[in-house]
């Protein structure tokens, strides 16, 4: 059943208030939406990262749902084990199946966790993997990841990152995943419906969520949702889904806002707007245009 109003959500708040996330944390907003839509019973697996650290300082926990963290690079492997084990325990009558949801950051997904993620998707485990993408290693203090966009300042790219962002969606589509989608917390209906849709599909599914980070992107915490919206409306973060290799752009941005509207609110991009760095700004724009035009081509060639 599609979600059209708040009452359609399941209503169990998975993450309780009182955790220690920064003000304006985009990741925790995304997690809240994911869990309100997720079908019970489920188990959450997290790799090491912001979400793990802000939610479980012993002897406290913010989780009202079963949750497990093992290490940084292996969340998808841990999820594989839980999913497969519950299958056999239910078969033997000594346990019951749960939905398994991994929620990890971009470091644990694009970089160090990619091998385990690839393995789990290739084996076809019935899991939903959610990546909250704040575009750098925020937990250790803002170092570049493969998800950091070009031009962005991080503590390990003090002059701005030279490389483009890894296309994680294409990587997982390439694994034959039946459902891979992107989402943004400012589009909560789209996000929650994608969670429900992903969970209704057998096999490994993936949701890539933009998660603005005030601390790491250097913006005022009240701008989190506005920045998520701007990322979508400038075509920097397209909202689309790929179902069995068929592309559907959920938010077709026919008249994009200028990327400068997005960049100027974040100090990580401040240098891109200086006249002497016009070439870097052009390179950023080329990246956005290349991705968008590639997406349009895919949607045309393989329409849903």
């Amino acid at each position: 059943m599609p979600i059209s109003k708040l009452a359609d959500l399941y209503g169990r708040e998975g993450l309780s208030p009182g955790h220690s996330a920064c003000q304006g944390c985009g990741a925790t907003i995304a997690v809240r939406q994911v869990l309100l839509a997720a079908e019970p019973p489920y188990i959450v697996v997290s790799p090491t990262g912001c979400l793990e650290v802000i939610s479980t300082p012993y002897p406290f926990t913010a989780w009202r749902v079963p949750w497990v963290h093992v290490a940084f690079e292996n969340a998808a492997a841990v999820a594989s084990g839980i999913e497969a084990a519950l299958n056999v325990l239910e078969r033997k009558g000594i346990g019951r199946r749960h939905k398994v949801i991994v929620i990890g950051g971009d470091g644990g997904t694009f970089d160090i966790g990619l091998q385990a993620l690839s393995g789990a998707f290739e084996r076809g485990h019935n899991i939903l993997y959610v990546c909250y993408d704040n575009e750098a290693y925020m937990n250790t203090g803002i170092q570049r990841s493969a998800a950091t966009p070009p031009g962005s300042i991080t503590t390990t790219t003090p002059a701005g990152k030279r490389e483009r962002k890894k296309d994680i969606v294409s990587i997982l589509v390439g694994h034959g995943s039946p459902y891979v989608a992107t989402a943004s917390p400012h589009l909560w209906k789209d996000l929650t419906n994608k969670v429900r849709k992903a969970q209704s599909i057998e096999g490994p599914t993936f949701l890539h969520i933009i998660a603005p980070c005030p601390r790491g992107w250097y913006f005022d915490p009240h701008l989190t949702i506005k920045l998520a919206k701007l990322a979508v409306e400038t075509r920097i973060f397209p909202i689309y889904e790929v179902e069995n290799g068929r592309y559907r752009i959920n938010y077709l941005i026919s008249r994009p806002r200028p990327v400068e509207d997005y960049l100027r609110l974040q100090n990580r991009f401040a240098h891109l707007l200086r006249p002497e760095n016009a070439a870097l700004l052009e390179e950023f724009k080329r990246w956005v245009e290349d991705r968008w035009s590639q997406l349009l081509k895919m949607a045309e060639a393989f329409p849903a």
């Binding site: 188990i43 697996v45 492997a77 841990v78 084990g81 084990a85 033997k92 385990a116 393995g119």
Partner: peptide
């Protein structure tokens, strides 16, 4: 043998999957 055999992509994932399965009660 009525068991799930998960042929993982590395030993790191093998033991990680075992931890997940063990915590699931297996």
């Amino acid at each position: 043998l009525d068991a799930e055999f998960v042929p993982v992509e590395s030993e790191h994932s093998a033991l990680s999957a075992c931890i997940g399965a063990s915590l699931a009660g297996a």
